[in-house]
């Protein structure tokens, strides 16, 4: 039976939230954004990482498809295969 559920060893937990709203909180194959250096991608198993995000479009690929979230900036924290994106901070 075909399934769209992503396997956890091939995915990374991605949570994108602002103080009053959660925009995305699921397993994903990758997340892409833009920081001061330029565009970057985060894949499962990424090294611990903290970066300030530039205004850009976050691009998330997950079992449910592709999702774009326009942001004004924020902070991304990656640890233990979990990417937390704090918006409006």
């Amino acid at each position: 039976m075909a399934t769209t559920t992503a396997k956890t060893d091939q995915t990374i937990r991605v949570k994108v939230a602002s103080p009053y709203q959660v925009y995305f909180d699921e397993q994903a194959y990758s997340i892409s954004g833009v920081n001061a250096t330029g565009p970057f991608d985060v894949l499962p198993g990424h090294h611990n990482f903290i970066t300030l995000l530039e205004p850009c479009e976050l691009f998330i690929r997950s079992g449910a498809g592709e999702r774009k979230i326009r942001i004004n900036g924020g902070l991304m924290h990656i640890k233990a295969n979990m990417a937390n994106v704090f918006l409006d901070v």
Binding site: N35, T37, H47, F49, L52, L75
Partner: peptide, 16 residues
């Protein structure tokens, strides 16, 4: 040494 900071730890700490 455990983390990659971009742009740098000082700028991230200042922003925070």
């Amino acid at each position: 040494q455990d983390y990659i900071f971009e742009p740098s730890p000082e700028i991230v700490a200042g922003h925070l």
